[in-house]
Amino acid sequence: MRAIVHAGSSGLEGLKYQKAADRTPGPGEVKVNLRAAGINHRDLFLMAARTNQDAPLILGSDGAGVIEAVGTGVVDLPIGAKVVINPCIGWDTLQPVPDVPQIVGGPTDGTLAEAILIPAKNAYPKPEYLTWEEAGVLPLAALTAYRALFTRGRLQPGEHVLIPGIGGGVATFALLMAVAAGARVSVTSRSEVKQQRALALGARQAVDSHSNWNESLHGEPVDLILDSIGPSTLGQSLEVIKPGGRIVMFGASSGDRLEFPARSLFFPQASLIGTSMGSSEEFGEMLKYIELHQIRPVLDRVFAVQDTASAFRRMQQGEQFGNIGIRI
């Protein structure tokens, strides 16, 4: 088979579209013939950290396709079944949370390939109403958004949710899910185009990221903030969070080191909560939720698999709104 393989250099220079080993499924595994995949910022971080000493790796955590073969012991997934892949391996229930979840696409080979082997329990029925491209970008971003909003954020109908830096895959899923839950959603962005797109998707307010958020939101306190940015936005978040409110962090695009006045957290008795990806239990719940509300991923652009490097460059430059898909 052919695949997007990273080897020999860090960053995008290590990407090659080439032949890769084609294996048969072992006990409890299935082989999925992939129709579409998605890319994430996680892939960029992995490539940046890899060196020419690392073994070749097929990237990609998101994907959807058709069962091509099954290993011994697999009885409930027939050949030809259409499936979407849960990329978190071995995290079955809400508790306990693993130290470091094993994710498809690093350390194990991923979805930017013609086929992939996964545990049978990580293959879920593809929502029929989604196209292959929509299903292909769904898994990691939608799972992360679902856990951040509902498991960790404990979102309730009618609450005010703020999503700084709207545009990425997780943020756009969170917007759609929060609106479906009956929340009032505000977003921030430096781009007026992205602000307008968020309003069209159901956001009630869209403000400039560089503005004074308290003034732009007309002093309306926020119950729940989903933050993927980190140091550059936390100060503003603490200024607008409601007493007893929750700030859920799932990324750190502006850096890893946080510095803020402790009083700004303990006086309003706010909660600063971390989250990342999610369990199989939550993956199943997420699929039920999007089917119930007929939520469709926001597809920014779909690239042919041989043009995956161009797709990553678009993501690197922050041009996307929604998820970037890869057609296999």
Rank of each mutant, 00 (worst) to 15 (best):
A3P: 07
I4M: 13
V5D: 03
V5W: 03
A7L: 08
L12W: 03
K16G: 12
K16S: 15
Y17D: 05
D22E: 15
R23A: 13
E29D: 13
E29V: 11
V30H: 03
V32D: 05
A36G: 00
A36I: 06
G38L: 05
R42T: 10
D43P: 05
F45L: 15
L46W: 09
M47A: 04
A48T: 14
D54G: 11
P56Y: 06
I58A: 05
L59P: 00
S61I: 01
D62C: 13
D62E: 08
A64Y: 05
G71F: 05
I79Y: 00
K82L: 12
K82V: 05
V83G: 01
I85T: 00
L94G: 13
L94I: 09
Q95N: 12
Q95G: 03
P98G: 09
V100A: 09
P107F: 09
T111Y: 06
L112E: 04
L112Y: 10
I116W: 00
L117N: 01
L117D: 05
P119H: 01
P119K: 08
A120V: 07
K121L: 09
T131R: 07
E133A: 15
E133Q: 14
A141S: 15
A145L: 09
T151G: 00
Q156D: 12
I163N: 05
P164L: 07
G165K: 04
I166Q: 08
G168A: 08
G168D: 05
V170D: 08
T172H: 09
T172V: 14
F173V: 03
L175V: 08
L176E: 08
A178Q: 02
V179M: 08
A180K: 14
S186H: 06
V187Y: 03
T188Y: 07
R190L: 12
Q195D: 07
Q196K: 15
R197C: 01
R197L: 14
A203H: 12
A206K: 11
E215M: 11
E215L: 14
L217W: 08
P221H: 11
V222C: 02
V222Y: 00
D223S: 14
S228T: 13
P231Y: 07
L234R: 03
L234D: 03
Q236Y: 00
S237R: 01
E239F: 01
V240N: 03
V240R: 02
I241L: 07
K242W: 08
G244C: 11
G244P: 07
G245D: 07
I247R: 00
V248N: 03
V248C: 10
D256W: 11
D256F: 12
R257C: 05
R257D: 13
E259F: 04
L265N: 12
I273Q: 01
E282N: 13
G284A: 14
G284P: 02
Y289R: 06
P297K: 09
D300M: 10
R301E: 12
F303M: 00
Q306F: 10
D307R: 10
D307I: 01
R314G: 06
Q316V: 12
G322C: 05
